[in-house]
Design a protein around this nucleic acid. Structure first.
Lengths: 239, 239
DNA sequence: TTTCACTATCTTGTATCCAAAATAAAAAAA
DNA sequence: TTTTTTTATTTTGGATACAAGATAGTGAAA
C-alpha cells in the first residue's frame, strides 16, 4: 500500500466483501473519503474502476451502488464463471510447468491446514488465491482479467449468502479435510492439470463452480430460483 | 452527449480506434484536455475507465498507453473473443425471440447493402453493431460486458492491421455480397440462431472469429507468429 | 389532510491549485 | 567525447473550491 488510490481500492473492496453494505446500498463519496481520511479524488477513481470491473453499479449522476442481487443475476454470474474458469483450468493444464503444479499443491496443503484448524477467514483467503492463481496459470492475460472480475462479482453472493465461509454464528466444521467438498474438488483440478488433461480440468472446474452455486442458490431471498440450470441451458454443456 | 465525461469518452475511444495513435503511444492528459477543451478531471476519469476496461494500459505514475500489440497478445485476445462470443451466440440461440431474429436479419441486410456500396466505414460500424447485438441477445449481462470489452480490445488489431476494413489505399471490393466472407458467416450465425441450434451457432461464431484472426495475423510486425493455433491449443476445441 | 411549490441541504460533476514523481536538458567530471 | 550529476521542465497524483443536479424538508394553498 503506497498511494492514496491503492489504499482506497483495497479498503473499499474490503468493505464491500466484508458486508459493510447491503445489496442495493449507495456508496457515498464524501462518506468514504472522510472515513478513510482521503480526499474525494482517489475515492472517485476507485469507484469508477469498480464500476468498470462490474463490482459496483453506477446510476447516472446518482452515485454508485452495491448491485441488487437476484437469482437471475446469480445465474449469469456463475455461468460466466464456469465458462471462464473452466477454460482457464484447461489452458493451465495445457501449458503448466512443474513449478506451476508445485504452487498449486502447496496452496492445496495450506487450504487443508486452514480447514482442519477451522480458520475460516484464512481458508477463504486461500480459496481466493487458488482460483486467482489458476486464472494466472492460463497464461492468457485476457481470460485472467475477466476471471478476476467475475470471481469477485460472484463473491458478492458468496460473502452475502454463503454461511459456510464466514458464518455469523460459528458452526463447527468437521475437522477432516476429506470432508470438505471444496478441498477435494480443488485436488481433482490440480490432479487434472498435473497430468495435462485439459478437458478433465475444465469439467472438474465447472462442476466445482456448480457445486458452489448450488450451495448458495437456495439462500437468495425473493424471486423464483427454480429451473436455472435446465437441460437446455446447462452449466456443463460440454461434458 | 451531455456531460464532459461522456464527450471525453466518445472522443478518446474514437481517437484510439481511428488510429490517431500507434501501439505503444502515450496518451497525455494535458494534451487531451487541451485538444478537447476540457479540464484534466474528466479526461483522467475516462482514461482510468479505459484502463479498467482493458483498452489502455497504465504504467505506474507514468501515464496511459496504447497497448503494445504482439502475436501472443493477439492470440489471447482472439481466443477469449471466440470463447465469449461463441457462448453468447449459443445462449442467444437458446433464448431468442422472433423480434431478436428480425433485428439480426435487418442488420444483415444493412451490412450487405453497405458492403455492395463499398462504404467501408459504415460497413465496419454495422459489423460492430452485429457483434454487440449478439452479445446482448445472450441475455447474460456478464457475458455481454466481457464481450464488449474484448471486442473493442480486439478492435485494436482489426483497426490497426486489417486493411480490409479501412484500407489506406482504396482497393475495390467485389460488389457481390456473397463474396464477403464476413457477410456469409454472419448469415450462417443468424440462421443457426433462428433455428435455435446453440452448438451450431457457437461453432460458426468461433470459426468466424478464427477467420478474422487468420486474415489479420499475418500483418502483425515483429515477432514469431507461427504455431499459435496448434492442435493442442486450438480455437475450436469443442467442435 | 392532501397536494403542490419553494427552499435548503446534500451529493456529484468540473475546474483549478499544489505536491511529488518522472522525464528531459544542461552542466560538470572523467 | 563519453559518462555522470545536477537542474529544470513536464506530467501525473491528490486536495480544494465552486457549479449543477438531486434529494429532503418545510410551508402554503386547496
Amino acid at each position: 500500500m503506497k498511494n492514496a488510490e491503492s489504499i482506497a481500492y483495497e479498503s473499499i473492496i474490503g468493505m464491500i466483501l466484508s458486508r459493510n453494505y447491503a445489496p442495493g446500498d449507495r456508496l457515498v463519496e464524501t462518506e468514504l473519503a472522510e472515513s478513510l481520511g482521503l480526499s474525494r479524488t482517489p475515492i472517485r477513481n476507485v469507484l469508477r474502476q469498480l464500476v468498470a470491473e462490474g463490482l459496483l453499479e453506477a446510476r447516472g449522476n446518482k452515485g454508485c451502488y452495491i448491485p441488487q442481487l437476484s437469482p437471475e443475476d446469480m445465474n449469469s454470474v456463475f455461468k460466466t464463471r464456469a465458462l471462464l474458469e473452466g477454460r482457464a483450468a484447461m489452458e493451465a493444464a495445457f501449458c503448466r510447468t512443474d513449478e506451476d503444479v508445485d504452487m498449486l499443491k502447496s496452496l492445496l496443503d495450506e487450504e487443508k491446514e486452514k480447514y482442519s484448524q477451522d480458520k475460516r477467514k484464512e481458508y477463504a483467503a486461500v480459496n481466493n488465491k487458488f482460483h486467482l492463481l489458476l486464472a494466472q496459470l492460463s497464461k492468457n492475460a485476457c481470460i485472467e482479467r475477466y476471471v478476476k472480475q467475475v470471481y469477485w462479482r460472484a463473491g458478492l453472493y458468496t460473502f452475502y449468502f454463503d454461511r459456510f465461509y464466514v458464518p455469523p454464528a460459528p458452526i463447527k466444521l468437521p475437522r477432516d479435510p476429506s470432508n470438505s467438498i471444496s478441498c477435494t474438488e480443488h485436488e481433482q483440478i490440480v490432479r487434472a492439470i498435473a497430468i495435462g488433461d485439459g478437458s478433465l480440468a475444465e469439467n472438474v472446474m465447472r462442476n466445482h463452480i456448480y457445486t458452489s452455486y448450488s450451495r448458495i442458490a437456495g439462500r437468495i431471498p425473493a424471486g423464483q430460483s427454480a429451473g436455472i440450470f435446465t437441460a437446455r441451458n446447462p452449466f456443463n454443456l460440454m461434458s
